[in-house]
Design a protein around this nucleic acid. Structure first.
Lengths: 149, 149
DNA sequence: TATTGTTATACTCTATAACTATA
DNA sequence: TATAGTTATAGAGTATAACAATA
């Protein structure tokens, strides 16, 4: 159990970290929005899934997810085909062109981060990644437990 | 020097962490936007400053900063008074009402985080805060070095 | 002529609500 | 009647460019 001062400081850091996200976003190719890249990354990692599942992973409303998916599908980065088990749904899958884009984006990200973080050790970087993942998990559990508002 | 895989993973985590920011933002009082709260926090921590300095600390364009400051000033959270050394500038300072708001916001943040992160140790939380601060610093240096595009 | 700050405009991301098609 | 997804609309945040006042 931590102190109030620490919690306030974490909130501060999370607020300010948005600037880093913006910097990173500026390295993307013109049509690749940060949101669509995140969609592609999830489909690449977890494989085929439905809209609702994707929205849950993104932790954003399904209406918003729907727009991001439509955007990516219009550009040929995602294939949508009917779900044989439920005609209301479509199954989403990253396409070969989507994988190519993801590859390019990974290169851009790596270039930007390798420059800015060249004095970071492998170990520190790993710690940060692990703690961020855990933070997201903790909030995800919280969200799952308390959505009955 | 780290691996490409690690850099890609960090970018992923940073993209996804926005969901945590949104959750935290939802705990704020209606008029207190996350952006204005960040402005107040900086003025509280660093004291009186000019618009340009604040924009630099926020790492956002001065035009945007100007709007956030006007919003906060309209609500009495910030005092603006002429800079005696440069009549183009105004000095910004957090007001007593701004400090009150910051106090309330700190309480809300603490409640939310203490709930979601109750199984985190003091030490892990401290590590995360330290690594986030260092990440912002590394990007800040990068930005300061390469803006001559 | 350059700099500080403001305002106008446009674009991205998100949420709420209304709607459709199917379960 | 409930659920999966789409679309319309509104609000917050940011960037670019044009502008005013002062240095």
């Amino acid at each position: 159990m931590a102190e109030r001062k620490q919690y306030e400081e974490l909130a501060r850091q999370l607020g300010a970290i948005a600037a880093v996200r913006r910097d990173l976003g500026r390295t993307l190719p013109p049509e690749a929005s940060p949101a669509s890249v995140l969609v592609l990354a999830l489909l690449h990692e977890y494989g085929e899934m439905r809209m609702g599942k994707l929205a849950e992973l993104l932790a954003i409303d399904m209406s918003v997810t729907s727009r991001h998916v439509a955007y990516a599908a219009d550009r040929g980065w995602i294939d949508r085909h009917p779900d044989p088990l439920d005609k209301r749904s479509r199954l989403l899958r990253i396409s070969p062109r989507g994988d190519e884009l993801l590859e390019l984006v990974g290169t851009r990200y790596t270039e930007a981060l390798a420059t800015c973080l060249r004095d970071w050790s492998d170990e520190d970087l790993g710690s940060l990644i692990g703690l961020l993942a855990r933070l997201r998990e903790s909030f995800g559990d919280c969200r799952a437990r308390a959505p009955q508002a």
